[in-house]
Design a binder for these strands. Structure first.
Length: 314
RNA sequence: GGGGGAAUUCCAGAGCGGUCAAAUGGGGCAGACUGUAAAUCUGUUGCCUACGGCUUCGAUGGUUCGAAUCCAUCUUCCCCCA
């Protein structure tokens, strides 16, 4: 039987971090962050990474462990987070996977591994060159020959995935569709209990996000971005894809006013939250806790406690 | 006070007599997602008893077989001269 873990999920600004800490304290657990941006060092304000006060002494893992200049990926995350989770289990504690990066969470929980090939790899570079010179047409035709299942499924505009599908084939001689098919059948590595946080009302979510962004600015987001840049971060870094950072980069470069940047960050954040909700809808069995006008953590804690107890944890 | 310009579907903004429920972008909504995932990609977006029908393009009234597109008046806004 797969070991049990608890996942605290939900879109941005719903309070996953706080609930995670409350529960970890109660259930003798440790937190493993599942966040593609909190992974990078020096990005605490803009990613709302938990501060030492907020962790309340609960050990947190996979936060600020990467250099912002590095290119992390779901695969690398899963590879590094898995032993961390296992170690927590070995010590008889309960892992709380807390975060909003859907793919990373799935990769960790299901533990399927990814097919070979990576960003920056030789084959990928080669494919990029071919794409630049010949467009997607020839590549899509090639995919149609070697992996018709993927070619059929992928939209012609979905360059990224078309290249990746070809990459897997060229690297391994096997198709990504067969790889996916096989890994889908594998039993998950962990038996996850999902607790989801969300707002009942979209407007309320929006207000919460706006508030959060305003607070980030007050706490010095601009300065944080400036410091990050001073460390000689390459412009194309994955870490700079983070919402808040890419917009404030524009402010520092004088391409946009802080006021506009703030509005942009709020907008992109709520669009992101929507995508997170879409992702989460495909996970069956999430125990949702709906926030009303206020986030009543006392109540959420109580509900979660009951859920976890019913699951035999605690 | 005089002269000129503009009013379009949630927003910006095309359209300049029929092929217009109205390009395009944004936003909204929905979806996808197996090595960049806070990324990337897709669909949809007036109403309906829906392969057809109905009501829209500041307002009213005209011209015309036919108008968002032409004319008149009115309303609002912008610019210029006073």
């Amino acid at each position: 039987m797969a070991p049990k873990v608890v996942c605290v999920v939900g879109p941005t600004a719903t309070g996953k971090t706080k609930l995670g800490v409350l529960l970890a304290k109660e259930f003798h657990g440790e937190v493993v962050s599942v966040d593609s941006m909190q992974i990078y060092r020096g990005m605490t304000i803009g990613t709302a990474a938990p501060t030492p006060e907020e962790t309340e002494g609960v050990p947190h893992h996979m936060i600020a462990v990467a250099d912002p200049a590095e290119q992390w990926s779901a695969a690398r995350y899963a590879a590094e987070a898995t032993p961390v989770v296992d170690d927590i289990l070995r010590r008889g504690k309960l892992p709380f996977l807390v975060g909003g990066t859907g793919l990373w969470l799935d990769a960790l929980v299901r533990g399927h591994g990814f097919a070979p090939g990576r960003t920056g790899g030789k084959v990928r570079e080669e494919l990029m060159r071919e794409f630049d010179s010949g467009g997607i047409g020839p590549l899509l035709r090639e995919l149609g020959r070697v992996d018709p299942v993927s070619a059929e499924k992928l939209h012609p505009a979905d360059t990224k995935r078309i290249l990746r599908a070809l990459e897997v084939y060229r690297e391994t001689g096997k198709t990504i569709s067969s790889h996916d098919e096989e890994t889908r059948k594998l039993p998950p590595r962990y038996d996850a209990v999902y607790i989801g946080l969300r707002f009942r009302d979209r407007e309320e979510m929006r207000r919460r996000i706006d508030l959060r962004v305003d607070r980030m600015v007050e706490q010095g987001l601009l300065e944080e971005v400036r410091t990050l840049l001073r460390s000689g971060l390459p412009r194309g870094s994955t870490s700079l894809q983070a919402i808040g950072y890419k917009e404030f980069l524009g402010v520092l470069e004088g391409n946009c006013t802080e006021r506009d940047a703030v509005a942009e960050v709020k907008l992109r954040s709520r669009q992101y939250a929507k995508r997170q909700l879409t992702w989460l809808r495909h996970i069956p069995g999430i125990h949702w806790i709906d926030w009303g006008e206020t986030r009543d953590f006392g109540r959420a804690f109580q509900i979660s406690t009951e859920i976890l107890s019913a699951e035999g944890l605690g």
